[in-house]
Amino acid sequence: MSDTAVDEMSFETAMAELEKVLGQLERGDVALDESIALYERGAALKARCEAKLKEAEEKVAAITLDGEGNPTGTKAVEGL
């Protein structure tokens, strides 16, 4: 597990760590206390990935197109 705060991670970093956490949990070779900590970290990483995906989807949805389908700019999206 990295020491980086989950809310500071990029999508790619959070996803990579989530995969490591899942691998450790699936192997089942960690103590119960560590399994609980890994599960909690995994839940936070999953939430971070979902938030980053939603943010990206909102940015894509905000792109405006001209009559020929070419991007002309973006609309302001609240919170971005």
Rank of each mutant, 00 (worst) to 15 (best):
E58G: 08
G79S: 08
T13M: 09
G69D: 06
V77N: 00
V21L: 09
T64H: 07
M9T: 04
T72P: 02
T4Q: 15
E34R: 11
I63T: 05
E12T: 15
L45V: 02
G67T: 13
R27H: 14
A62H: 04
M9Y: 03
T72A: 06
L18W: 04
A14Q: 00
M1V: 12
C49Q: 01
T64F: 05
E26G: 07
G28F: 05
A14C: 08
K46F: 08
T4M: 12
E8S: 15
A43I: 07
S2D: 07
G28D: 07
R41E: 01
T72D: 02
G28V: 04
A14T: 02
V6A: 09
A31Q: 03
L65K: 06
P71K: 05
E40V: 10
E12M: 13
T4F: 08
L22G: 11
G69T: 01
L32D: 06
G23H: 01
R27L: 13
S35Y: 00
I36T: 03
D7C: 11
A43T: 13
S35K: 06
E8V: 12
G79N: 12
E78L: 14
D33R: 01
A76G: 09
D7A: 10
E26L: 11
A43G: 07
I36Q: 08
R48D: 00
A51T: 10
G73M: 01
A51Y: 02
T64G: 04
C49H: 03
N70G: 04
C49A: 14
A5K: 14
E50K: 08
D3N: 15
S10W: 12
D66F: 02
V6E: 06
V77Q: 07
E19F: 13
R27A: 09
L53C: 12
V6H: 10
D33Y: 01
D29N: 09
K75F: 02
C49L: 08
L80W: 05
N70W: 07
